[in-house]
Amino acid sequence: MKAQFFILGAILLCSLFFIGLPPGQPLVQSPLQDMDYILQNLEREFPHALNLGLEDENPRQTMEDFTSWVRGLTQNFLLNFSSFWVFAEGDPLTGNVVVSLGNYMGSDMNVNLDLDGDQRNVFVQDGDSQSTTFSSVGSSYDLSVQFGNEARSFTWQRDKVNLFALIELVRGENIARSDVVA
């Protein structure tokens, strides 16, 4: 009789143990999983948006519009989106290069540009873009960009549109970041 009580007690304690276990993963998307996918998606779409803007002969406005829209969208995903982009359009006839800057980093900033030794300082408000024109640029040029605490250097071809975009997604302590160069 005593043994039966011990067996019953064992079965009861085993049952309590397994009842206390979580019943497997719920079908709920973890907030961490989508950041990588969205970042990869944006890495592809930023150059595409610029191409579409060039076809419309309105690249800077298109990039501004697209970046602002993405910023608003990602807020709905509880993501803090930041971006800084630079693209350069060269004119082989005149040798001019127009460098356009877009600042979506959350604060106004002074951007330092150095194109083959020609230095410029451009003030760009948060959520805005600016352009500056460099004259008599060679077929290949070195461009350095300092924005905030970041700095990047490139060697670009003048007769091609070149793009650099920094994209950063933040949610809590999780950060997904990427440099896009096209």
Binding site: P26, L27, V28, Q29, D34, Y37, I38, N41, L42, E45, F46, H48, A49, L52, G53, E55, D56, T62, D65, F66, V70, L73, F77
Partner: peptide
């Protein structure tokens, strides 16, 4: 509950 996936596109032939 369900899972939502989001995909952003800038456009096809125009913005």
């Amino acid at each position: 509950v369900w899972i939502g996936n989001y995909y952003i596109i800038a456009g096809e032939d125009q913005y």
